[in-house]
Design a protein around this nucleic acid. Structure first.
Lengths: 357, 357
DNA sequence: CTGAAAGCGCTTACAG
DNA sequence: CTGAAAGCGCTTACAG
């Protein structure tokens, strides 16, 4: 079949012909470049509208000598802490694979989640040789706000993934709705445990920065049980080593022997599962439901062994992939991008994790 | 930044220069077209290998006057039955939107799920003016096998979605692992109901063709409980009207008053939920867990009202999207395609359905 | 069996 | 402020 049987899409050539100008002039108008008299400009613009001109992206990228650079600013993957960020990075690579044909190049930068100064330092590096677009995880709010202020000045679009800073004019946010994920955890607990038993909420984190995020999940959980008599107790564990976890948990469970569900508000659920496993061996009668977050290697392995019951996951790979694609859509295709994209709240179990990601 | 600073990707021009032939001859070799002497051919092939030549897809699609036609053969969406197939269709449209710039066109064909002859009829239409690739839901096995026999003869690649016919040399299969989804349902029942209570499996379908699929799900569920004492009973309901469902269910629940979970092996779970709702009103004491399949409008609405507990879903939209993309990858990008792609087994609840799809 | 040339719809120096 | 022309890396008639 031959192309364009029927409605021939008209191009710059036809626009130039109708406007009685050279193609180069049409090009100037299309890209809003200077050097066109107002009169010529409006004439060409009228014709563009009339023809409903759609640029041919293939031709554009083929002819252009400009390669589009996208910088990513994400936490470094640290095997000691959590390998969560390997998945977004993989998603970003997949996106790059798909669009590198179109002259898009990704420049990855990494900061240390335990060191807010490293964020600022790496951010400064990015600004030294600014990319055309930026994808970032705004883990440190203050530093992120300062960084994107510079981006705004340079008119560089930026996308947030995994956590949001609202009201910052980002191109878009792609990540979880923390509150609703906590709410979902509430429902699972409701289904799986007797309704008069206690729920223990654990925030295991020394990163104070995280706290706001963890609180939103806790709020979601509490909201689910708002109109019930369900007893809920919360513990913050700031030291994340096994001994500290053991100490806090032992005490909490002694204090509240009616606990039948533990909700860990982040990926540290694996560490908690270790303690509960040990405890269950001594104490056969008590079966405690354990729910936590994130598809890390360790969590999945603990899930598979039956020491974690549910993991709530939000497609971290897809977040990276879509973040890049959003920048691409915006910069190359020039199509509008959805401002907020909440990821599905996926419930991962021993039985379905093999099909995830 | 200028393009190709560094490793200049070499193209046909350079190959032609090195082989001392015209570009047209290189093109013939690249596309394995006739009219090249064996000697010239092998010489060019050697250079292509040596240079690790990667064709520029942009240039290829821009220069080519050939538009790639992909036919889709799917069940017609019938509002009376189920709107399940609207989602794959939407996924296909999304894919088309993304790749129509590259001269890909989708030609949709629909058959009637209640009429196997309609499948054969529409399939014949497709063969009258064969597309370059085909995406189909092989709902009727015999007719599908006969259709793809013709496709094989014509060397047209085809992709199965939603259900598979193994050993048919399809380019790939994209859809659920039915057995494992039944297994997952088993786990949810295990978590949510007392372990000595009964599980009722319902196959609600007059389409005998379906039966094999439904059985796989049932087998998965039974496998989960294989080494337990859990009582399981199965009922087939061949008439799908409310009265027939009511009749069978009333009898089954009378016969087995210890039933605390009902597993419906397909999207007909909404109809079952109607009966159970009615029954619960009369019979307050008995709370029965209800699990079924598919993200149809009606099912989601029943889920939202609390009359269905869990829906197992397998990203129908994504199946359509990926099916088209697989054909595109194969035909345009010429990259190898994964033979089997099982979709995640998603657990959808009242609390997370709003974030799905 | 092989090659020279036009063209796909754009962008980009460069000249005026 | 404007235009003529070369070129992006391919494919496609057409000529020999």
């Amino acid at each position: 079949m031959k192309k364009q049987s029927g409605e021939q899409p008209l191009g710059v050539k036809e626009i130039a012909r109708r406007a009685n100008v050279a193609i180069a002039t049409v090009d100037r108008v299309i890209h809003n470049r200077p050097g066109v008299s107002p009169k010529t400009k409006s004439k060409i613009e009228a014709i563009i509208r009339e023809l409903n001109y759609q640029p041919n992206i293939l031709a554009r990228r083929l002819a252009s000598r400009h390669v589009l650079r996208l910088a990513t600013l994400l936490p470094k993957v640290s095997s000691e802490e959590t390998d969560f960020w390997t998945l977004p990075v993989a998603g970003i690579q997949k996106a790059e694979e798909e669009i590198k044909q179109f002259g898009v190049k990704i420049e990855p930068y990494y900061f240390d989640l335990n060191n807010r100064k490293s964020f600022a330092k790496v951010a400064k590096q990015i600004l030294k040789n600014p990319a055309d677009g930026i994808l970032l995880a705004p883990s440190f709010i203050e530093e992120s706000v300062s960084f994107i202020r510079s981006c705004k000045e340079l008119k560089i679009p930026y996308v947030f993934i995994n956590s949001d800073i609202p009201q910052q004019e980002s191109l878009c946010y792609i990540g979880p709705d923390l509150f609703r994920s906590g709410y979902q955890a509430g429902q699972l607990i409701h289904y799986c445990t007797p309704r008069d038993t206690r729920v223990l909420v654990l925030n295991v984190s020394h990163e104070i920065e995280d706290h706001h995020h963890l609180l939103r999940k806790e709020e979601g959980l509490r909201a689910y049980f708002a109109n019930t008599a369900r007893p809920i107790v919360k513990k913050d564990i700031q030291q994340t080593d096994p001994a500290s976890i053991e100490k806090v948990l032992t005490k909490a469970l002694q204090q509240h022997p009616d606990t039948r569900a533990v909700f860990v508000t982040n990926s540290r659920v694996a560490a908690v599962s270790r303690f509960l496993e040990k405890r269950a061996r001594k104490n056969k009668d008590q079966n405690i439901l354990l729910i936590g977050y994130d598809f890390t290697k360790e969590n999945v392995s603990r899930l598979d062994q039956g020491h974690i019951d549910f993991l709530i996951c939000q497609q971290p790979g897809e977040q990276g992939y879509r973040g890049i694609m959003a920048l691409y859509q915006h910069l190359v295709m020039k199509v509008p991008v959805e401002k907020t994209h909440f990821m599905p709240i996926d419930i991962i179990t021993k039985e379905n994790h093999a099909f995830y990601i």
